[in-house]
Amino acid sequence: MKKVINRQEDIIEEMIEGFLCVNEDLYEKLDRGVVLKEKKDKVGILTGGGSGHEPLFLGFVGNGLADGAALGNVFAAPTPYNILEVIESVDSGKGVIQIYGNYAGDVLNFDMAAELAEMEGIECKSILVRDDVASAPLSRYEDRRGIAGDVFVIKLAGAAADEGLSIDEVARISQKAADNTRSIGVALSSATIPGLEKPTFTLAEDEIEFGMGIHGEPGIKRTKMMKADDLTTQMMETLFNDYPYKKGDEVSVLVNGLGSTTQMELLIVNRKVNQMLKEKGITIHHNDVNNYCTSQEMGGLSISLLLLDDELKALYNKPAYSPYYVKNA
């Protein structure tokens, strides 16, 4: 696979450098991380994970979002020391909440970082995102992985922290946001880790895989390619089967591209998503169609629903800004 890189070992460093050129006033660079320059007197919000999903995670450091991100190598968790450096930087004495997807490597490294932070007297709580309904059945919810739903959880945690709430309150709200987020993805084509020869998996030209993870983890089923409406219907039904959404429910919707699927295609899917939600009498509070959580050049998309209540809705409506995510008041 052709990749526009220099040396493999410089990928992360050079990516962070390029990112900082975009908005020098807003950010400062750490060893393997990015933090807001402005230090705020509130609960710190940290996110992070393996790189390769840009703009997640670094693009979700911003006002009303995360205060910092710890970045690992492509598809590999950051080290505890990289995470600790971000924790120290975003802590104002009110503690830090780390938001990350539920993956074995991330859990190990973030857990260890939290222990190191506690030793320094920094209170640290973890919120694990498990929005991918295809990654494990509901009976094994604890095993579910995090995908594009990270975006909703970071948005709400950031808003809650900006309200000046305590770490326990921000953690409660963040956990509710995580619990209320469900996603389903489909892969059309594979991705390659920069520097490696072979793609992470292979799919035949006419095949797609339902529920494939953002690192190529196997999904629920492999089928023939189908029309957008049929694909969207199957994806939405998977979500509807996972949670009893009912008439009158209010949701935020994110249709997220995985890398090489075009905005045109995402919009066509989004049209059907809107139709289906309306048919069920579900109100769409906010609708976003974007490439937030990608997987290199993987083809495909995910659909995420965030179920809102009054508390979450009020926080969702708060403004937020990063070069990659804007929410106007």
Binding site: G50, A77, T79, Y81, A104, L108, N109
Partner: peptide
């Protein structure tokens, strides 16, 4: 190893 590796293997 913990400082430089990352992933699950670094910690383990």
């Amino acid at each position: 190893m913990i400082k430089t590796m990352g992933g699950a293997s670094g910690v383990i």
